[in-house]
Design a protein around this nucleic acid. Structure first.
Length: 581
DNA sequence: GCCGTTTTCGGCCCGACTGTTTTCAGTCG
């Protein structure tokens, strides 16, 4: 079993324990252990199989949780979890995802109304029954209804890093089958959508059909939804992500990739174009309307070329002007030369143990060097995030001095002194200017009061942009994928102000945020904004999330020149607000 | 439940807001 799955069982149990009002410190231990496992560099299964190793050597795992992990390994669950699952409906965990609904309220609803499904809960809210209970009222009913609606919308979708990991695992597994030539992921995963509903894999080679048989026997495959000669479909892992594997003849791989990559609207537009030019396009190739002769299909490039287009990178295939930009004479084409991961030279939003990160400055610098970066900015939280042990003015100043005093030549990369400073309700910074002035860069972010009225929120962000020390707007819309919507404000107005003041927009590469997303990136660019792609890493392994931020930038049509952290450190610093020229 | 230890039990993170009250429980970050 994967570490992630152990972690998930522990975290879910912690949620249920909270509803059961068990001891808070015990719950935290379960959560800590789950976090530890999630970030643990080795497979836990391997540690357990090794008689020379002990689980309790891992910090955060003691005798109790070690026994739980052994039990999970043997039978996939453990006693405490089984009891709680028996006691509460599975929807209890779903309900926790509704913002504003916490364990206490859920426990009360279950005890009083015997709620077992989201439908039950929805009906109770519509019938205004919740207000019969103490401390519950109209606002809560409204909030829950909204939450259920957005939960329904997002259910069945998965974060991109999760889908990518499964796709990569299966690609390796299927590629190892003798007689398989190529395995390619298509679908929204290939386009780099921030969440995906299912994964599409295409397999070519003499043994493509054998690969389908192998796929359904994969140890993590659960329900097999279908299994024929050319297609197998199954749910993978305990999360149940649907994966479709298709056997494709090599001569039509390009056509199949094009077809299954989509998007639907891109393909509709492309087929219309094909029609105008006397062709018909399907997953087997591009054919002449008169006579049915096949003119392309082995590669995507030859299909686009036959239609008079440059090859369009999958990230752009959303029918947002990419077909027009790819057309015309070769020298008149307007497709951007998209940014690539290798263009990135530094990471400008990183947390350490000073606030809520899990590693030291030196360890994060080491990990950045391993990625070939030249610099990082350490940007821990400011004091408004008390729970994250945010820095107050004195600690900010001390931190800046510590970084200045460091022997930078002894560090594996250049380390910049930064801060992720909270934007307060009134738009002022959480830290006074005198302290901010000591830093190399300030990322300004909203972490509170996310439900302000649009006009007020706009004013708040405009005020933040006015602070002379703010260099970057952190996760500008505040959305948390599959969990919380963006806060509402006049983005164009704020983007225009940021462009005017030289404040860069962050593209937060954390797979849970991916904020900004493509449509807003294009708006910001049209207003003259520049961008910084940052991982918001709280763990050394989070630095690898940069690829998802780059994908987001590509979806937003960005080129190397739009992104400041493609520059070497001195030019990067020089390009930030107030340092230009 | 974990950790650290003055080895056998005490400490573990908390400030602010919201909606409901009329002094505060629940939620969030």
């Amino acid at each position: 079993m994967e570490n992630l799955e152990y972690a998930r069982l522990l975290a879910e149990t912690a949620d249920l324990m909270e509803i059961a009002a068990e001891d808070g410190f015990r719950i935290r231990s379960y959560r800590n252990a789950a976090d530890t496992l999630q970030g643990y560099p080795e497979r836990i299964d391997g540690v357990m199989a090794d008689p020379a190793r002990k689980l309790t050597e891992i910090t955060g795992i003691g005798k109790g949780i070690a026994a739980v992990l052994e039990e999970i390994r043997e039978r996939g669950s453990f006693a405490r979890r089984d009891e709680l699952m028996e006691k509460y409906p599975p929807t209890a965990l779903e309900m926790l995802k509704i913002p504003g609904l916490g364990p206490k309220t859920i426990a009360a609803l279950i005890a009083h109304f015997r709620v077992t499904t989201l439908d039950d809960l929805e009906r109770l809210c519509r019938e205004q029954k919740l207000r019969e209970l103490p401390r519950m009222g109209a606002k809560l009913e409204e909030k829950i209804l909204k939450g259920i609606a957005s939960l329904r919308q997002s259910s069945g979708r998965f974060h991109i890093h999760f889908a990518a990991a499964i796709a990569e695992e299966l690609t390796g597994y299927l590629s190892a089958v003798a007689g398989v030539e190529r395995v390619e992921a298509a679908g929204s995963l290939r386009r780099g959508r921030e969440t995906v509903g299912d994964v599409d894999l295409l397999v070519t080679g003499a043994a493509a059909a054998a690969a389908l048989d192998r796929f359904v026997k994969h140890p993590r495959v659960g329900d097999v939804l279908g299994h024929g000669d050319t297609k197998a479909s199954a749910r993978v892992g305990i999360e149940g992500l649907q994966v479709d594997v298709r056997a494709v003849p090599a001569e039509s791989l390009g056509a199949a990739l094009q077809y299954f990559t989509g998007s639907k609207t891109h393909n509709v537009a492309l087929r219309q174009l094909a029609m105008q030019r006397g062709y018909t396009l399907n997953e087997y190739g591009l054919f002449r309307l008169d006579g049915g002769e096949r003119v392309a299909g082995r590669t995507e490039e030859e299909i686009y070329e036959a239609l008079g287009l440059a090859w369009i990178p999958p990230e752009l295939r959303e029918n947002q002007g990419e077909i027009e930009a790819a057309g015309g004479a070769a020298n008149a084409r307007r497709l951007p030369t998209l940014l690539e991961l290798g263009d990135i030279h530094g990471d400008a939003h990183i947390h350490t143990r000073e606030s809520d990160g899990r590693f030291s400055l030196e360890e994060m610098a080491e990990a950045a060097a391993a990625r070939g970066y030249g610099y990082i900015a350490i940007t821990d939280h400011s004091k408004a995030l008390a729970m994250a042990n945010g820095l107050d003015e004195a600690r900010v100043i001390r931190f800046a001095e510590t970084v200045r005093a460091m022997d930078q030549s002894a560090l594996p990369v250049r380390v910049l002194a930064g801060l992720e400073c909270d934007i307060r309700r009134d738009g002022r910074m959480d830290i006074d200017d005198e302290a901010l002035a000591r830093l190399d860069l300030v990322v300004a972010s909203v972490h509170s009061h996310m439900n302000m009225e649009s006009g007020e929120m706009t004013e708040r962000l405009l005020a933040a942009v006015e602070n002379p020390y703010v260099k970057i707007m952190g996760h500008p819309t505040g959305r948390v994928l599959l969990h919380r919507d963006a806060y509402v404000y006049d983005f164009e107005k704020v983007a225009a102000a940021a462009a005017g003041r030289g404040v860069a927009m962050e593209i937060n590469a954390s797979p849970e945020r991916l904020d900004l997303h493509a449509p807003l990136i294009r708006i910001a660019k049209s207003k003259g904004c520049r961008f910084v792609i940052s991982t918001d890493a709280h763990h050394v392994k989070h630095l690898a999330n940069m690829r998802f931020g780059v994908t987001m930038a590509r979806r937003g049509w960005l080129e190397k020149g739009d992104v400041l952290n493609t520059l070497p450190v001195d030019q990067f610093l020089g390009s930030l607000r107030g340092n230009e020229g």
